[in-house]
Structure formats: C-alpha cells, structure tokens
C-alpha cells in the first residue's frame, strides 16, 4: 500500500516536471496563430527542435511508465483519488517555478476540483 502511494507520487512528480518543461519551452517561442495551418506548422517545427521539450517528453514518458506500473498493481479506488494530487503539484510548480499568478479564485477552483475527483472516485 505504502509502495503504491510512492509509485503514484513519483508518477505525478515526473508528470509535473514534464509539464513545467513544456510550458518553459513554449514560453520561449512566439505564440502560433491557431487559425492558420502554416503558423502552427512553423511552431511545431520550432518546438521539436528544442532541448527543453525533449527533456520534458522524457520526463512524461517516465511518468507514464510509473503510472502504468501503479495501475497494474493498484486498486483503482486508491489510484484515482491520489491521482488528483497532480492538480496541487501543478499549482505549486506553476507558482514557484514558472512564476504564474495564483490568486484565490484559482486556488479555490483547484481545491474544489481535487475534492470533486475524490468524490467521483469514491462513488
């Protein structure tokens, strides 16, 4: 049981690292115009040439593998509620690593979502 909790937490930390790196990578680029294919294509090519993005992809892959291992041995009623902690980790990482603005509304919203997921998982 304790081992399962550690596995899930490890998967979430790797995922968070991956997401933060993705965000850091895209922050360094110009925003693509979502309406035109050409602008998007230029953006994708730039993204794929960035080291940050590739390291992020590695982190996400490790996260996914650890998550799959957790799913393979874990009770879903344990894995899913714990999975909701991802939202908390992202909130903290966005604030402290990416310097995003976190106001009360965002924090309350995120906490409501976490409780909502726990309720759904328990039902």
């Amino acid at each position: 049981m304790i081992q399962l909790v550690f596995l899930i937490l490890a998967a979430e930390i790797w995922n968070t690292v991956g997401q933060v790196l993705f965000k850091k990578g895209t922050n360094a680029l110009e925003k693509p115009h979502l309406g035109t294919f050409h602008s998007y294509w230029v953006f994708v090519k730039k993204v794929l040439s960035m080291k940050t993005i590739w390291i992020g992809l590695c982190a996400m892959t490790i996260g996914l593998i650890v998550w799959l291992v957790a799913l393979s041995r874990g009770d879903l009623s344990v894995v899913f509620p714990l999975g909701s902690l991802q939202y908390l980790l992202i909130l903290v990482a966005s604030r402290w690593i990416l310097g995003e603005k976190i106001n009360w509304m965002k924090s309350i919203g995120t906490i409501l979502i976490i409780f909502g997921i726990i309720l759904i998982a328990k039902s």
Binding site: T26, K31, L34, R95, E100, T110
Partner: peptide, 11 residues
Amino acid sequence: WIAILSHIDLS
C-alpha cells in the same frame, strides 16, 4: 497540448 500551453498559463 503544446499549442494550448503557448497561449495560456499551465495553472
């Protein structure tokens, strides 16, 4: 996902 992230905050 990366197109989304290029437009809005991760949080």
